[in-house]
Every structure is written in structure tokens, then in C-alpha cells.
Amino acid sequence: MRRRRWWAVAALAGLAVAAAGAVILLVARAGLDTADKVASVIGAAAAVVFGGAGLWLASRPQQQPNQQINRAEGDGTVYGVQGGNLIIGDPAAPDDR
């Protein structure tokens, strides 16, 4: 698990360095006005892609589990743990304990 986390952190750091380098290169070569326009187009395209992916994921039918969890059946009485002892069934009278 640590190895996977390390690779994830390294990948994010590499992506951040690459993005910063691209921004610096774009601003240095094209100027601020062109860099602003390019960034706006990239942002709009990313918004359309991620918005469409979000709508597609939200419209998919949710999968229901095959079994129901935490379902009670039959007649039963549940008593809590008292004094560190778990009581199953009817509690005995205080003299019988």
C-alpha cells in the first residue's frame, strides 16, 4: 500500500511540475494575452468533458446489493452489554447469576 501511495504522490508531483512548465513556456513564448485565451479554451473543454462524465455517471442506474444487510427476523429480545458481560437470551434473576 505504501508503494502505491508513493507512486501516486510522485505522479501528482510530476504532473504539477509539467503543468507549471507548460504555463511558463506558454507565457514566455506567446505572451499573457495568448496564454489567457489558451487557458480559457482548455478550461472550457475540461468543463465540458468532466461535466458530461458527471452527468453520464449520475444517469446510470444504481446497482442494488443482492442481499439485505442488518435484517431482523423472528421473535427475539436483544439486551445490551452490562458490566462487560454480554447477555444472550433472557437475563437470569440477580440471585441466579
Rank of each mutant, 00 (worst) to 15 (best):
R2V: 09
R4I: 15
R4T: 14
R4Q: 15
R5T: 12
V9M: 04
A11L: 12
A11D: 01
G14H: 06
L15T: 10
A16I: 08
A16P: 02
V17S: 00
V17N: 00
A18T: 14
A18M: 12
A19H: 01
A19C: 07
A20R: 06
A20P: 04
A20S: 08
A22C: 06
A22T: 08
V23I: 10
V23G: 00
L25S: 07
L25I: 09
L25D: 06
L26M: 13
L26H: 08
V27F: 03
R29W: 02
A30Q: 15
A30R: 09
G31E: 02
L32Y: 09
D33G: 06
D33P: 09
D33K: 14
D33S: 14
T34E: 04
K37Q: 12
V38S: 01
S40K: 11
S40A: 15
S40H: 10
V41Y: 07
V41W: 08
I42Q: 09
I42P: 01
G43Q: 09
G43V: 12
A45W: 00
A45D: 05
A45P: 01
A46R: 07
A47F: 04
V48R: 00
V49H: 10
V49F: 07
F50D: 02
G51F: 10
G51Q: 04
G52W: 00
G52D: 03
A53G: 07
A53C: 05
A53N: 11
L55M: 05
L55V: 15
L55F: 01
W56V: 14
W56A: 09
W56E: 05
L57G: 05
L57T: 11
L57A: 14
L57M: 14
A58Y: 04
A58H: 07
S59N: 03
R60F: 01
P61H: 00
Q62C: 00
P65D: 00
P65K: 06
N66F: 04
N66V: 13
N66Q: 15
N66C: 06
Q67P: 02
Q67D: 11
I69H: 14
A72I: 15
E73R: 15
E73W: 06
G74L: 05
G74N: 13
G76I: 13
T77C: 02
T77A: 05
Y79N: 13
G80K: 11
G83D: 05
G83Y: 00
G83S: 03
G84F: 04
N85D: 02
N85H: 13
N85V: 15
I87N: 06
I88S: 01
G89Q: 08
G89R: 04
G89S: 05
P91A: 09
A92P: 13
A92D: 06
A93D: 03
A93K: 08
A93G: 05
D95T: 03
D95F: 09
R97S: 09
R97G: 08
